[in-house]
Simulated assay, not measured.
Amino acid sequence: MTTYKTFAKIYDEVMDETVYEDWLNFTTRHIGDNPKEILELACGTGILSVELANLGHQVVGLDLSKEMIELAKERTTPEDDLLSFEVGDMLDLNKNEDYDVVTCYSDSLCYMPDEEAVQTVFNEVYRSLKSDGTFLFDVHSIFKIEEEFSEYSYHYQTDEFAFLWESYPGDVPYSVEHFLTFFVKENNQDELFRRYDELHEERTYTIETYQSLLKQAGFSEVKVCADFTDNQPEDESKRWFFICQK
């Protein structure tokens, strides 16, 4: 098992499973019941893609990590003609397909290094959508970055691994650095654990900045809401959601 496969399995275990149901409900609420062709960016191990396909949508899950995609493919069978997974970069959606819907959840856009990269993603998504297509995504709010992630600490352990997550303010405005440490049991025959470390850097922007970048990409209508609801963001909203129409 590669390092990233180990991380992916751990991520699935420590992730709150109910959040996938929240993303699913948010998506279906905004795209309707009729079958759609959907591209899920940053699909990870494919949990949401599978659920969307189970509802009758034609889904392509895309992720930069080959190891994540390998795990996602384990969720499929040869009979799954509505679901496929591909390794790919949201900064370069060099495909000829046109989609009814593109999604990008789990604050994946916050991993873009700067505004230029975010603009590139918006441009690529716009180009990949049909003329009346919908782009759904979420990002961390400024409150989440500056208040809740300030000196954030989370520890989780089982008999097979331990996971330590520490967060600190980043070097640029509205940014955070997540230091992740994993202690993973080598095998079932002994008590040896191997340590792995990762640094994750995220940043967000004002709602007005996202709206401006989306407008530059060509989106004609943008609605902003918060925390899996259709309500407008408030000062202490944690996650902003954008519903964008081409």
Rank of each mutant, 00 (worst) to 15 (best):
S106V: 08
S106Q: 01
S108W: 10
S108I: 08
S108V: 10
L109M: 14
L109G: 11
L109T: 08
C110P: 04
C110G: 05
C110Y: 05
C110Q: 06
Y111K: 01
M112C: 15
M112L: 15
P113Q: 10
P113C: 08
E115V: 13
E115K: 15
E115S: 13
E115T: 11
E116G: 06
E116D: 15
A117G: 08
A117D: 12
Q119S: 15
Q119T: 12
Q119I: 07
Q119C: 05
Q119R: 13
Q119H: 06
Q119A: 15
Q119P: 02
T120S: 11
T120F: 04
T120N: 15
V121S: 04
V121A: 07
F122E: 02
N123Y: 08
V125P: 02
V125N: 02
V125K: 01
Y126A: 14
R127S: 14
S128Q: 06
S128N: 05
L129M: 01
S131K: 13
D132R: 08
G133E: 05
G133T: 03
T134M: 04
F135G: 13
F135V: 10
L136H: 06
L136A: 12
L136G: 08
F137L: 14
F137M: 11
D138Y: 13
D138R: 08
V139I: 14
H140V: 04
H140C: 13
H140I: 03
H140L: 11
S141I: 04
I142N: 09
F143S: 13
F143L: 05
F143M: 06
K144F: 10
I145C: 10
E146C: 11
E147H: 12
E147F: 06
E147A: 12
E147P: 03
E148V: 12
F149N: 10
F149M: 15
F149H: 07
Y152W: 07
Y152Q: 06
Y154L: 06
Y154R: 04
Y154D: 04
Y154T: 00
Y154F: 15
H155Y: 09
H155I: 07
Y156A: 01
Y156V: 01
Y156P: 01
Y156G: 02
T158K: 00
T158H: 01
D159K: 11
E160Y: 10
E160Q: 11
F161L: 00
F161I: 00
A162P: 00
A162Q: 03
F163I: 00
L164E: 10
W165D: 09
